[in-house]
Protein backbone atom coordinates (compact mmCIF):
# COMPACT_ATOMS: atom_id res chain seq x y z
CA UNK A 1 0.00 0.00 0.00
CA UNK A 2 1.29 3.45 -0.82
CA UNK A 3 2.56 5.62 1.99
CA UNK A 4 -0.19 8.14 1.26
CA UNK A 5 -3.08 5.66 1.60
CA UNK A 6 -1.42 4.15 4.63
CA UNK A 7 -0.99 7.58 6.08
CA UNK A 8 -4.64 8.46 5.39
CA UNK A 9 -5.85 5.32 7.16
CA UNK A 10 -3.65 5.94 10.17
CA UNK A 11 -4.64 9.62 10.16
CA UNK A 12 -8.30 8.66 10.39
CA UNK A 13 -7.53 6.40 13.33
CA UNK A 14 -5.57 9.17 15.01
CA UNK A 15 -8.36 11.67 14.57
CA UNK A 16 -11.00 9.27 15.80
CA UNK A 17 -8.90 8.43 18.86
CA UNK A 18 -9.25 12.07 19.97
CA UNK A 19 -5.56 12.31 20.83
CA UNK A 20 -5.34 15.20 23.35
CA UNK A 21 -2.02 16.39 21.91
CA UNK A 22 -3.48 16.72 18.40
CA UNK A 23 -6.51 18.60 19.70
CA UNK A 24 -4.30 20.89 21.80
CA UNK A 25 -2.30 21.76 18.67
CA UNK A 26 -5.51 22.42 16.79
CA UNK A 27 -6.89 24.62 19.55
CA UNK A 28 -3.64 26.60 19.84
CA UNK A 29 -3.51 27.17 16.06
CA UNK A 30 -7.07 28.43 16.07
CA UNK A 31 -6.42 30.73 19.02
CA UNK A 32 -3.17 32.13 17.68
CA UNK A 33 -4.32 32.68 14.10
CA UNK A 34 -7.75 33.92 15.19
CA UNK A 35 -6.17 36.46 17.53
CA UNK A 36 -3.64 37.51 14.88
CA UNK A 37 -6.46 38.02 12.35
CA UNK A 38 -8.38 40.09 14.88
CA UNK A 39 -5.32 42.25 15.57
CA UNK A 40 -4.75 42.59 11.82
CA UNK A 41 -8.37 43.74 11.41
CA UNK A 42 -7.96 46.31 14.17
CA UNK A 43 -4.90 47.70 12.40
CA UNK A 44 -5.78 47.06 8.78
CA UNK A 45 -9.37 48.28 8.59
CA UNK A 46 -8.74 51.83 9.88
CA UNK A 47 -5.49 52.01 7.95
CA UNK A 48 -7.07 50.76 4.72
CA UNK A 49 -10.03 53.12 5.13
CA UNK A 50 -7.70 56.06 5.78
CA UNK A 51 -5.59 55.28 2.74
CA UNK A 52 -8.73 54.95 0.64
CA UNK A 53 -10.41 58.16 1.80
CA UNK A 54 -7.65 60.56 2.77
CA UNK A 55 -5.49 62.58 0.42
CA UNK A 56 -2.02 63.42 1.71
CA UNK A 57 1.54 63.68 0.53
CA UNK A 58 3.14 60.25 0.33
CA UNK A 59 -0.17 58.42 0.01
CA UNK A 60 0.94 56.71 -3.20
CA UNK A 61 4.08 55.46 -1.48
CA UNK A 62 2.05 54.21 1.50
CA UNK A 63 -0.30 52.30 -0.83
CA UNK A 64 2.70 50.78 -2.62
CA UNK A 65 4.16 49.68 0.72
CA UNK A 66 0.88 48.02 1.69
CA UNK A 67 0.72 46.22 -1.63
CA UNK A 68 4.32 45.10 -1.16
CA UNK A 69 3.49 43.98 2.37
CA UNK A 70 0.77 41.72 0.98
CA UNK A 71 3.47 39.71 -0.74
CA UNK A 72 6.19 39.66 1.92
CA UNK A 73 7.28 36.06 2.67
CA UNK A 74 6.32 34.99 6.24
CA UNK A 75 9.89 33.84 6.85
CA UNK A 76 11.09 37.43 6.38
CA UNK A 77 8.50 38.65 8.89
CA UNK A 78 9.62 35.86 11.22
CA UNK A 79 13.23 36.98 10.95
CA UNK A 80 12.50 40.59 11.84
CA UNK A 81 10.09 39.71 14.66
CA UNK A 82 12.74 37.32 16.03
CA UNK A 83 15.31 40.15 16.00
CA UNK A 84 12.85 42.48 17.69
CA UNK A 85 11.93 39.99 20.40
CA UNK A 86 15.42 38.49 20.84
CA UNK A 87 16.61 38.78 24.42
CA UNK A 88 19.09 41.54 23.44
CA UNK A 89 16.68 43.06 20.90
CA UNK A 90 14.62 46.26 21.23
CA UNK A 91 11.64 44.38 22.69
CA UNK A 92 13.62 41.64 24.42
CA UNK A 93 12.51 42.76 27.87
CA UNK A 94 8.99 41.64 27.06
CA UNK A 95 10.29 38.03 26.95
CA UNK A 96 7.80 37.08 24.24
CA UNK A 97 10.09 35.03 22.00
CA UNK A 98 9.05 31.36 21.80
CA UNK A 99 5.59 32.12 23.22
CA UNK A 100 2.20 32.03 21.49
CA UNK A 101 2.17 35.83 21.81
CA UNK A 102 5.23 36.03 19.57
CA UNK A 103 3.44 33.96 16.92
CA UNK A 104 0.44 36.28 17.23
CA UNK A 105 2.71 39.30 16.66
CA UNK A 106 4.34 37.74 13.61
CA UNK A 107 1.10 36.48 12.12
CA UNK A 108 -0.60 39.83 12.73
CA UNK A 109 2.23 41.50 10.82
CA UNK A 110 1.67 39.08 7.96
CA UNK A 111 -2.11 39.51 7.93
CA UNK A 112 -2.27 43.29 8.51
CA UNK A 113 -1.08 44.30 5.01
CA UNK A 114 -3.50 41.78 3.49
CA UNK A 115 -6.42 43.20 5.48
CA UNK A 116 -5.26 46.78 4.79
CA UNK A 117 -4.93 46.20 1.06
CA UNK A 118 -8.29 44.49 0.68
CA UNK A 119 -10.00 47.11 2.86
CA UNK A 120 -8.44 49.86 0.77
CA UNK A 121 -9.74 48.28 -2.42
CA UNK A 122 -13.18 47.61 -0.92
CA UNK A 123 -13.61 51.17 0.35
CA UNK A 124 -12.32 52.69 -2.88
CA UNK A 125 -14.90 50.60 -4.69
CA UNK A 126 -17.70 52.44 -2.88
CA UNK A 127 -18.56 55.30 -5.27
CA UNK A 128 -17.27 58.73 -4.28
CA UNK A 129 -20.75 60.11 -4.94
CA UNK A 130 -22.12 57.81 -2.21
CA UNK A 131 -19.66 59.32 0.26
CA UNK A 132 -20.73 62.78 -0.84
CA UNK A 133 -24.36 61.77 -0.42
CA UNK A 134 -23.72 60.70 3.17
CA UNK A 135 -22.12 64.05 3.96
CA UNK A 136 -25.04 65.76 2.26
CA UNK A 137 -27.39 63.89 4.59
CA UNK A 138 -25.56 65.36 7.57
CA UNK A 139 -22.99 62.67 8.34
CA UNK A 140 -19.88 63.67 10.25
CA UNK A 141 -16.67 62.36 8.74
CA UNK A 142 -16.58 59.49 11.26
CA UNK A 143 -20.21 58.59 10.53
CA UNK A 144 -19.48 58.69 6.82
CA UNK A 145 -16.51 56.33 7.16
CA UNK A 146 -18.56 53.95 9.31
CA UNK A 147 -21.38 53.74 6.74
CA UNK A 148 -18.88 53.33 3.91
CA UNK A 149 -17.24 50.43 5.77
CA UNK A 150 -20.66 48.90 6.33
CA UNK A 151 -21.36 49.33 2.63
CA UNK A 152 -18.09 47.54 1.84
CA UNK A 153 -18.73 44.71 4.29
CA UNK A 154 -19.05 41.97 1.67
CA UNK A 155 -15.66 42.50 0.06
CA UNK A 156 -14.22 43.11 3.53
CA UNK A 157 -15.26 39.62 4.57
CA UNK A 158 -12.82 38.58 1.89
CA UNK A 159 -10.19 40.47 3.88
CA UNK A 160 -11.00 38.35 6.92
CA UNK A 161 -10.83 35.16 4.88
CA UNK A 162 -7.59 36.12 3.17
CA UNK A 163 -6.02 37.29 6.43
CA UNK A 164 -6.96 34.16 8.38
CA UNK A 165 -6.11 31.88 5.47
CA UNK A 166 -2.73 33.55 5.13
CA UNK A 167 -1.69 33.05 8.74
CA UNK A 168 -3.25 29.71 9.65
CA UNK A 169 -1.30 28.12 6.80
CA UNK A 170 2.05 29.91 7.19
CA UNK A 171 4.99 28.05 8.67
CA UNK A 172 8.15 30.18 8.45
CA UNK A 173 7.28 32.89 10.96
CA UNK A 174 5.59 30.53 13.45
CA UNK A 175 8.61 28.27 13.46
CA UNK A 176 11.12 31.08 13.89
CA UNK A 177 9.38 33.06 16.63
CA UNK A 178 7.51 30.19 18.29
CA UNK A 179 10.22 27.57 18.28
CA UNK A 180 7.73 24.69 17.81
CA UNK A 181 7.83 23.86 21.54
CA UNK A 182 5.68 20.87 22.40
CA UNK A 183 2.63 21.85 24.41
CA UNK A 184 3.44 25.54 24.18
CA UNK A 185 3.99 26.89 20.66
CA UNK A 186 3.42 23.91 18.45
CA UNK A 187 0.87 24.77 15.76
CA UNK A 188 -0.60 22.61 13.04
CA UNK A 189 1.92 23.71 10.43
CA UNK A 190 5.01 23.51 12.63
CA UNK A 191 3.89 20.10 13.91
CA UNK A 192 3.42 18.90 10.33
CA UNK A 193 6.98 19.89 9.44
CA UNK A 194 8.32 18.12 12.50
CA UNK A 195 6.34 14.91 11.93
CA UNK A 196 7.30 14.87 8.25
CA UNK A 197 10.98 15.24 9.15
CA UNK A 198 10.58 12.32 11.56
CA UNK A 199 8.93 10.21 8.88
CA UNK A 200 5.63 10.06 10.74
CA UNK A 201 3.56 10.62 7.63
CA UNK A 202 0.36 9.37 9.24
CA UNK A 203 0.50 12.07 11.92
CA UNK A 204 1.52 14.71 9.36
CA UNK A 205 -1.36 13.72 7.09
CA UNK A 206 -3.78 13.76 10.04
CA UNK A 207 -2.62 17.26 10.92
CA UNK A 208 -2.91 18.38 7.31
CA UNK A 209 -6.47 17.09 7.15
CA UNK A 210 -7.26 18.94 10.35
CA UNK A 211 -5.74 22.10 8.90
CA UNK A 212 -7.72 21.78 5.70
CA UNK A 213 -10.95 21.12 7.58
CA UNK A 214 -10.30 24.08 9.86
CA UNK A 215 -9.60 26.45 6.97
CA UNK A 216 -12.62 25.09 5.12
CA UNK A 217 -14.97 25.52 8.08
CA UNK A 218 -13.88 29.10 8.75
CA UNK A 219 -14.11 30.07 5.10
CA UNK A 220 -17.39 28.23 4.64
CA UNK A 221 -18.92 30.16 7.54
CA UNK A 222 -17.64 33.50 6.23
CA UNK A 223 -18.67 32.68 2.66
CA UNK A 224 -22.13 31.72 3.87
CA UNK A 225 -22.51 35.09 5.56
CA UNK A 226 -21.12 36.89 2.51
CA UNK A 227 -23.25 35.13 -0.06
CA UNK A 228 -26.40 35.36 2.05
CA UNK A 229 -25.96 39.15 2.08
CA UNK A 230 -25.07 39.26 -1.60
CA UNK A 231 -28.21 37.38 -2.62
Amino acid sequence: MSPILDGLRQAAALLLSRDPEVWAILWLSLQVSGTATLVALLIGVPLGATLALARFAGRGLAVSLVNTGMGVPPVVVGLFVSILLWRSGPLGELELLYTPAAIVVAQAMIAAPIVTGITLAAVQNVPEMFRLQLLALGASRTQMVWVVLREARLPMLAAVMAGFGGVISEIGASLMVGGNIKGQTRTLTTAMVLETNKGNFDVAIALSILLLVLVFLVNWALTWVQQRRAS
Binding site: P127, M129, F130, L132, Q133, A136, L137, G138, V147, E151
Partner: peptide, 12 residues
Protein backbone atom coordinates in the same frame (compact mmCIF):
# COMPACT_ATOMS: atom_id res chain seq x y z
CA UNK B 1 -29.87 70.95 4.65
CA UNK B 2 -30.52 67.82 2.63
CA UNK B 3 -29.44 66.96 -0.86
CA UNK B 4 -30.65 64.55 -3.52
CA UNK B 5 -28.47 63.64 -6.46
CA UNK B 6 -29.24 62.39 -9.95
CA UNK B 7 -28.57 58.83 -8.82
CA UNK B 8 -30.51 57.72 -5.73
CA UNK B 9 -27.27 56.50 -4.05
CA UNK B 10 -29.08 54.29 -1.55
CA UNK B 11 -27.15 52.25 0.98
CA UNK B 12 -27.17 48.44 0.75
Amino acid sequence: MAMVFQQPLLAD
